[in-house]
Amino acid sequence: MFYGVMKLTLGGSLKLAFKPWVEGLENIPAEGPAILASNHLSFSDSFFLPAVLDRKVTFIAKAEYFTSPGVKGKLTAAFFKGVGQLPVDRSGARGAGEAAIKSGLEVLARGELFGIYPEGTRSPDGRLYRGKPGGLARVALASGAPVIPVAMIDTEKIQPPGKVVPKLMSPGIRIGKPLDFSRYHGMENDRFILRSVTDEVMYEIMKLSGQEYVDIYATAAKRQIAEAKKQAEAEAREARKDQAEQ
């Protein structure tokens, strides 16, 4: 019931304020389990996608959103539960991955929609990064549920890092045709199969989104960007020091 109220209030507000456009809604099954595999450009992706769907879609979110103390923490936890997100403890990569898989399988076993971001984290620069095979592919092969590729368009432009007030613009959502991986059922422990399934899904997301594809993980790209920024700042400090000494 709470989800329905949140969808009406938050979903209605998002659609009224931002007017998101969507293509391919007919590819979402009216009933039964399915995995929505999406690119990840913005924190708001998990809100815009459910807003345009008639069915509930469940994503996973870091456990800290559900356990923060105080009134603000309780309100945040209620909000995330209300929009259909499940807490996952991300302390330890392996533990987080297993928890995400377990959560996904439980959602699908109920005949519901499970949303997942194969990149594992938000894109640091708007490009599409290599998908992680440990979550999406294992859930797909273990459950037998179809995988529906989804492309979020321009959501990163609504509230770029450092911006408090969101920009009122129309983001887009493209939903592709379901992908059937039943031929690999029971092979969820074969790393070559997992890689193949993940790459096929990422290729479909790339076609839908039009993003440039980068064949490294987004987490590695974030480290490279952080290191480059740190190096640039160090060089700038050194340059200012040299100027001061002249």
Results as ranks from 00 to 15, higher is better:
105 L>K: 12
62 K>E: 09
246 Q>R: 07
131 G>T: 01
163 K>W: 07
57 V>W: 07
36 L>T: 07
233 E>F: 05
77 A>L: 15
133 P>G: 08
26 E>L: 08
124 P>V: 13
121 T>K: 09
145 A>L: 10
90 R>G: 05
223 R>M: 11
226 A>M: 11
115 G>H: 04
88 V>C: 13
80 F>W: 14
183 R>Q: 14
193 I>Q: 06
117 Y>W: 08
113 L>P: 01
180 D>T: 07
84 G>D: 05
216 I>A: 04
7 K>N: 13
37 A>T: 05
1 M>V: 08
138 R>P: 00
6 M>D: 01
84 G>H: 06
26 E>G: 09
46 S>P: 00
157 K>P: 01
37 A>P: 00
214 V>Y: 05
48 F>I: 13
39 N>M: 12
109 A>C: 09
69 P>K: 15
227 E>H: 01
95 G>Q: 13
246 Q>W: 02
145 A>S: 10
186 G>A: 11
171 P>E: 07
41 L>W: 04
237 R>W: 03
94 R>I: 14
222 K>R: 15
243 Q>W: 04
66 F>Y: 12
108 L>Q: 10
119 E>A: 14
217 Y>K: 15
114 F>L: 12
192 F>E: 15
238 E>K: 11
59 F>R: 06
231 Q>H: 09
140 A>T: 06
111 G>C: 08
34 A>Y: 02
175 I>T: 10
57 V>L: 14
236 A>C: 07
104 G>Q: 02
102 K>E: 11
61 A>N: 08
10 L>R: 08
86 L>V: 07
132 K>R: 13
234 A>V: 09
232 A>F: 05
189 N>V: 07
222 K>D: 02
211 Q>M: 14
177 K>I: 02
190 D>Q: 11
155 T>P: 01
34 A>T: 03
112 E>Y: 05
129 Y>W: 12
182 S>P: 01
23 E>A: 06
